[in-house]
Structures are given as structure tokens and as C-alpha cells.
């Protein structure tokens, strides 16, 4: 495998994390293909996002609803100080074809909301399509280690 593929994929994942932490919601959504899906199953045993319980199962339309809500002046829960910090690592290319690449990684995310700090961590699995504009996400699966834990407050944006 070409060394620059590993590098390119890592740069892509870091860029995505940076969009989240910078609250650049539209550029974040634009990283997905037209039919792309962001999926966080409630447990690792889930095989498909369709027709199943999901913490997130969002196509671009639903992602746009979430973005518009986050940006609405009356999204009350968005008023307080709210910051996140993602670190992405352990990047492993699972498979690669001419048009597609599947990559696994691990993340840690610290969230500050008012005076409360929460810590989320888990695994990403990105199914990426190669396009003339670079990689685009067909499916991002997020297996959060604390997915089944009781939530002190809820999740506002993608993890």
C-alpha cells in the first residue's frame, strides 16, 4: 500500500475532526457523498443502520436539520458555553479498491458544557469513496464505548 494513501486518509480524518471542533457544520456535512450516512448504533452487534434502533442514523437531509437547529437563535440548549475536542488515532486501512477505501480508527472526545466535562471514546469506521474532490464518506459508523451508558444530558452534534 502506498505510504501516501495512509497519509491522505489520516489527513482526511483529522480534517473531519477539526470541522467538528470548529463548529464548521456545513463543511462537515459536505464531506459526505450525496447518499452518505452518519450512523451510531446503540451496540456493536448491529449490522445495518436501516430499520434499526440508532443513536444517530442520518442522511444528508437529517444532518441538515440538525445543523439548522444548532444554528437557530432559539436553540436554547446551544446558548451555554459548549466546546468539544476530538483526537483521532490508530488509523488502519481495512481494505482498498480502485474507487473505495475502508478505514478504521479510534477517537477520544472531551466535551465541555457550562462547567461539566464529559468524555466519549470509541471506534470510527469510514467507508470512503474516491472522488475528483478527494475522499467523500459513504458511511461513517461510530461505535462509542459509552453508547449504552446513562447519558448525563444528551448529544447535540455528531461525535
Amino acid at each position: 500500500m502506498a505510504k501516501n494513501t495512509q497519509h491522505e486518509v489520516e489527513q482526511f480524518l483529522y480534517q473531519q475532526a477539526e470541522f467538528l471542533d470548529g463548529k464548521h457544520w456545513q463543511p462537515y456535512i459536505d464531506l459526505f457523498t450525496q447518499d452518505g450516512v452518519y450512523w451510531m448504533p446503540p451496540e456493536p452487534s448491529y449490522q445495518t443502520w436501516e430499520g434499526q434502533v440508532a443513536i444517530f442514523a442520518e442522511d444528508k437531509n437529517l444532518m441538515t436539520v440538525r445543523m439548522k437547529r444548532l444554528l437557530h437563535p432559539d436553540a436554547w440548549s446551544q446558548r451555554p458555553l459548549w466546546e468539544t475536542n476530538h483526537v483521532v488515532s490508530n488509523v488502519i486501512i481495512e481494505k482498498q479498491t480502485r474507487d473505495e477505501i475502508v478505514v478504521r480508527s479510534r477517537f477520544h472526545m472531551l466535551e465541555l458544557r457550562r462547567d461539566d466535562v464529559r468524555h466519549f471514546a470509541g471506534a470510527y469506521r469510514h467507508e470512503l469513496r474516491k472522488t475528483k474532490n478527494g475522499y467523500r464518506i459513504k458511511l461513517q459508523r461510530v461505535d462509542m464505548a459509552n453508547a449504552q451508558a446513562a447519558y448525563e444530558y444528551v448529544l447535540q452534534a455528531w461525535v
Binding site: 430499520g51 434502533v53 437547529r69 436554547w76
Partner: peptide
């Protein structure tokens, strides 16, 4: 039929999941 379940599921995922688009603002209140 399955499509009727999907309605219930859509509500569960969108309104009642921990990534709820609705209850976040209730919890704040």
C-alpha cells in the same frame, strides 16, 4: 406490517434517542 413499525422507530430515534433533536431543549429548561 413493517412500515408501521418504522414510524414508531423514526420517532424513537429522532425524539427519544440520546442524540435527540427535541428533548435537548427540554432538558435545558
Amino acid at each position: 406490517p413493517e412500515p408501521i413499525y418504522r414510524r414508531s422507530l423514526a420517532y424513537y430515534n429522532l425524539v427519544n434517542s440520546p442524540a435527540t433533536l427535541v428533548n435537548a431543549d427540554d432538558l435545558e429548561n
